[in-house]
């Protein structure tokens, strides 16, 4: 394969708070290739959003602090880049779509102004060129009557339409990399389905590389080539979408998949529940962050952090951070792999 588009090496981010230091991202490393779609799954506090924001200098400092790491985008380290260059990248080569379109859009500017901003800034287009490109973009994301609607303000759009505007802004300058953070979480399922179809279409047409951050395993199943499961600021497991869902190697992934109803009707079966509560990242971590909730944890899990390594006999790049062997533990209990 060619050189990766994005390479994250040993990224660690902390927040200094009055209550102590929060370890939000711990030693995260991965690579992303051109045209690939990476789905990052995790719950709140897993570090999935913070790690993405910190890559492009969007974590406010203080309280945020990048303790270590390199983020190489097309070979250049984003963390060492001067702010001016980063500004050129953000909204240009790297597009963003955030969760909440109502707070991300400026309520006192028309959609047209907000769509033209990145085009004027990054593309050196004339105002009239930017205007017609802005209309094209709105049409591309499937907003009807784009010519008229572009003069409207965000509050005149419905939630789904606003999210489409956000996506239009995110892809305005044909980014190499699109980072979407819970971009469809606030939307109704029918609208979410439309937005996901749109992203699939964009991938096909422009070969956009995508990082799709979500807590929804279903969304990832349909969209991602590679899935990365995060918990407590660490990558628990990473691999091609098929093996992750069929033969998960991390007890956390396994538990998450088991705890979702799989289309069964009301039965006497109780849902599998992961015991305990999400970790408190204030405590300095020892060992595997999931160990206290993991029924397969070995004594070693509690005091030594497992490295993210290749799954034995995997040829597809399936990685897991675990001291225990999940398939073996499940076989011993005669449970299904997923």
């Amino acid at each position: 394969m060619s050189a990766p588009l994005l390479e994250v090496r040993n990224l660690s981010v902390v927040f200094d708070t009055p209550a102590g230091t929060v370890h939000a991202v711990n030693d995260v490393s991965y690579t992303l290739h051109d045209g690939e779609t990476l789905g990052i799954v995790g719950e709140s506090g897993s570090g999935k959003s913070v790690h993405a924001l910190s890559m492009v200098g969007l974590v406010p400092c203080p309280p945020g602090r990048i303790v270590s790491g390199e983020v190489l985008f097309e070979g250049r380290d984003l963390l060492k880049m001067p702010e001016r260059d980063l500004c050129q990248l953000r909204g240009g080569r790297i597009g963003f779509v955030f969760q909440d379109p109502m707070t991300s859009l400026n309520p006192v500017l028309t959609v047209e102004r907000q769509l033209m901003e990145p085009l004027l800034r990054h593309r050196n287009l004339s105002r009239s060129q930017a205007k017609s490109r802005a209309v094209e973009l709105l049409e591309l994301v499937g907003i009807p009557h784009a010519k008229e609607r572009i003069r409207q303000y965000p509050h005149q759009f419905s939630g789904g339409m606003r999210q489409r505007v956000m996506i239009a802004i995110g892809i305005a300058c044909d980014p190499k990399l699109l980072i979407a953070d819970e971009a469809t979480t606030a939307l109704d399922v029918t609208v979410q389905a439309q937005v996901l179809d749109l992203v699939r279409d964009l991938k096909k047409r422009f070969g956009t590389t995508v990082i799709w951050i979500t807590h929804d395993m279903g969304v990832v199943a349909g969209l991602a080539d590679t899935v990365q499961v995060m918990y407590g600021g660490r990558i628990m497991e990473r691999g091609p979408v098929g093996p992750i869902f069929k033969t998960p190697r991390s007890a956390y992934t396994w538990g998450l998949l088991r705890s979702l109803p799989h289309g069964e009707a009301r039965t006497q079966r109780r849902l599998y529940q992961i015991p305990g509560q999400p970790p408190n990242l204030l405590d300095s971590q020892q060992g595997d962050p999931f160990a206290p909730r993991n029924e397969f944890a070995t004594p070693r899990c509690f005091h030594e952090v497992p490295p993210l390594v290749q799954v034995p006999d995997s040829t597809s790049g399936h990685l897991v951070a675990a001291w225990y062997d999940l398939p073996m533990a499940l076989r011993a209990r005669q449970e299904k792999p997923a």
Partner: peptide, 19 residues
């Protein structure tokens, strides 16, 4: 429409679905 819009945590189903 609602039923076909729910994402299912299964790549084989998700990849072949029509909304």
């Amino acid at each position: 429409a609602l039923l076909t819009a729910i994402p299912v945590p299964d790549p084989d189903i998700e990849r072949n679905r029509r909304h």
